[in-house]
Design a protein around this nucleic acid. Structure first.
Lengths: 234, 234
DNA sequence: CTTCCCTTTTAACCTTACATTAACAAAAAT
DNA sequence: ATTTTTGTTAATGTAAGGTTAAAAGGGAAG
């Protein structure tokens, strides 16, 4: 059963150690983004959604704590694990202060790290209850519930949407009446922008158009070379 | 306002170390129950509600893991911290398997322990908001008593549920009409998310559907790749 | 220790759901 | 005019879920 891979942001300045760790994590089915310093780490963090951050404490320019604090300011929820050089009590305490979820002393056992990662990610998974209103949209006379993945026309029987259909329609709805760039959907939903994913997206646009036909006020327009626009005519 | 003191169950066979640790925790405003071995630990656990369990791994008669497993069977939520004699990888891994939240190697720094305790208790506190003591549910014309593990249809003869059936139905009921993520059930009930546990869960879903058949208004819907939804149609 | 019963997991087989790719048509851009 | 982009439908391959049955565990009682 292919689960969605969990995404990890790894910030580690030692290139050897960083690469080894990255490879190890990737071998264990995580999608890893490796940043070589605090600056880069923060940039990458802002660009993407991660399920976990692993931060080295000792780094030039911007140490792990400072980075963690910045990350916490943007997002109070991502779990953070610190890698500390050795048992430095101050480090550990400071880490917890900025809201770390755990720490590991180098050198550490890789299997233990894996277990911690698993435990932490699972923990977060159970916490995530519901931010309901993020997931409900009105599109003309349709109701889209993108958490339960259905589309209902005027209180009729809900039409089940596939994950991709759902995500795409949701993105369009988020940009209602505005341009939803092709590239955006491809990078956010397909996580890759190439000929095939692009054609795949077109197929999904066709499906959505079919679903939305019952309300002739709602249409998905193409903006050649740019993307699509979900419009609701009054 | 006087905060309710957090209750800790400390199971540690070394009388000296145990007493010192207990005193230290009490000095830091925790209410501590100290059990000298696994048996006693379990007895005390059953008698009271605790916010956290700290278990020594190495104990005569009943080691920390066995105890943890018993505790987990009774309560899937209490955080557990293990104290391991030294960095024994096997211990650590085994600990996580039975659902530990963390572990500490002896000798450890007491301040670090305090931080961990604080972090863990806080974590649970944010998780456990409304989800407190919900053990009785109305599901269409069924009554589920998940404390006694039975399901009754319109006041008829109660059907006895197995532990897993019960837990699963309870989770579904807690999320009635909403998505109950697969991952949630697997991590909370099966404590592991892999192909086999996932298939096992499907088997249980089939069983529950059979049990719920008498009321055709009640159904368990699948949301492909996400989880299940217990719906009660009006 | 063995047997029995209850629970859970594993296996097997089948159905449904999804995403991708191909193929061809139509628009739009150059 | 012809190259690129988009529209649409259908075919294909794979993964997830439904269901039943058999195997494996585990605890209590004999």
């Amino acid at each position: 059963m292919e689960e969605q891979k969990k995404r990890i942001l790894l910030v580690e300045d030692d290139p050897n150690f960083g690469t080894v760790l990255k490879d190890y994590l990737m071998m264990n089915d995580y999608e890893v983004t490796h940043a070589k310093n605090g600056m880069e780490g923060f940039e990458k963090f802002k660009k993407d959604d991660f399920d976990l951050c692993i931060l080295d404490v000792m780094m030039p320019y911007k140490d792990g704590f400072t980075l963690a604090k910045e990350i916490r300011d943007k997002n109070t929820d991502v779990p953070i694990i610190f890698l500390t050089a050795k048992t430095m009590k101050e480090d550990v305490l400071r880490g917890y202060k900025v809201g770390a979820d755990d720490y590991l002393n180098k050198p550490f056992d890789s299997e233990v790290l894996l277990m911690k990662i698993k435990a932490i990610i699972q923990r977060k998974a159970t916490e995530t209850i519901s931010d309901s209103k993020q997931f409900e949209f009105k599109i003309g006379s349709f109701d889209l519930n993108s958490k339960l993945r259905f589309l209902r026309f005027k209180g009729g029987d809900p039409l089940k949407l596939s994950p991709k259909e759902n995500e795409l329609l949701r993105l369009l709805a988020l940009h209602e009446n505005d341009l939803m760039p092709r590239e955006l959907a491809l990078t956010k939903i397909w996580r890759d922008d190439n000929y095939f994913t692009s054609r795949s997206m077109d197929v999904y646009i066709a499906k959505l158009r079919k679903y939305l036909k019952p309300d002739e006020k709602v249409e998905i327009l193409n903006i050649h070379g740019e993307g699509f626009r979900l419009v609701v005519n009054s």
